Simulated scan of single mutants.
Amino acid sequence: MKLILIDDDPIVSASLKTILEVNSDIKVLEIGSDGNQALELYMRHSPDIILMDIRMKETNGIEAGKKIMAYDADARIVYLTTFLDDEYVDEALNLGAKGYLLKQDFANIVPALKSIMANQIVFGEGVMNRLQPRHQRFKHDELSNKEHHLIELVAKGLNNKEIAEVVAYSEGTVRNQISALLEKLEVRDRTQLAIFYYQNLKK
């Protein structure tokens, strides 16, 4: 797993690098100190994951993330921050981040990164607790087996074409069914659909 770290605190960056590289399968390719460097380093190295703070001088992590996603829609952006503001969480979800983790939960950073490499979307416990009330009223048994399976495939990171191959439907049919699920569950996008799966359906 090859990573880029972006954090404006050099002590944090150095500590993270040490923690991560204790694992022999993780290599930190380079460290940046500002969101302005994020896209440049991403384009230079094409890392598996870019692990980035949110609040930084000049360009923050959200703006940097938007630029990276515009360059590569399949980029795995993971935010590692001390801030649990609703605005930041929502913006991270909307731009397609694969993870939103809290620095104080450092013991779970490496397992989270490995889950993301396995095409899962990972959010720290504090983030999940904040999102949980949105779907409390929904009953699990209101989903058919087919709908449950589609949500599971989305949560695993498959795109519409890949899902169509698994379920033997046309890509257009898959797109329509996922749109119907978004409306039924009152979630905005595929990322929130994946969060719903991990909160409510995964056993």
Rank of each mutant, 00 (worst) to 15 (best):
R188D: 12
L182A: 05
L39I: 11
P133S: 08
K146C: 03
D141N: 14
D86L: 12
I11N: 09
E162P: 01
D34T: 15
I62V: 07
P111D: 08
F106M: 14
D85L: 14
V12Y: 05
I195C: 06
M52A: 06
I4Y: 02
F123I: 09
L5G: 01
E21V: 06
A92T: 03
K114A: 03
G99P: 01
R175P: 01
I77C: 04
G126N: 13
V28C: 07
K17V: 02
Q104V: 13
Y79R: 08
F123T: 05
I68H: 04
G126P: 00
V22M: 14
E186F: 10
M1G: 04
V89G: 00
L51R: 08
K202Y: 06
S46R: 15
R190L: 14
N36I: 14
T191L: 07
R175L: 10
R190A: 07
L102I: 13
I109P: 00
G172I: 08
L158A: 03
N176L: 12
I54R: 01
D86H: 11
F83E: 12
I163A: 04
R55Q: 13
V174S: 00
D74E: 14
L5R: 04
M117T: 07
V78F: 04
P111S: 10
M56H: 02
G96D: 05
E147V: 04
L95W: 04
L185K: 05
A194I: 06
S46D: 09
G126W: 04
E186A: 15
K17R: 15
G32V: 05
Y79P: 00
A112V: 03
K67T: 03
L158S: 03
L150V: 03
N200V: 08
I19A: 12
N129S: 14
P47L: 12
V187K: 06
L143G: 01
D90P: 00
A14K: 14
M69C: 05
R175I: 07
E40Y: 12
I121E: 00
L29N: 02
T81N: 03
L41P: 00
D85N: 13
P47N: 11
K114P: 00
T173S: 11
I163W: 02
E58M: 12
I19W: 04
A75W: 02
V127F: 03
L93C: 07
I31L: 08
Q104K: 11
L113S: 02
K146L: 13
F138T: 05
R188I: 06
Y79W: 08
K57I: 07
I50V: 15
Y71C: 10
Y198H: 13
L131T: 01
A155W: 01
D141E: 14
S179V: 08
E63V: 14
V166M: 09
K17N: 03
D72N: 15
F106T: 07
I19Q: 09
L5K: 04
L101V: 07
E63C: 03
E125W: 06
K161A: 12
E91F: 05
E21T: 08
K67L: 15
V110R: 05
M52K: 04
D86C: 02
I19L: 15
M117V: 09
Y79F: 15
N36H: 11
L153A: 04
V174P: 00
E162W: 06
L3R: 06
R134Y: 09
G157M: 09
V22R: 15
N94Q: 12
D53L: 10
Q104M: 11
M117A: 11
N176W: 05
L3E: 01
L93I: 15
R55N: 10
S24E: 15
I178R: 08
L102D: 01
Q199H: 10
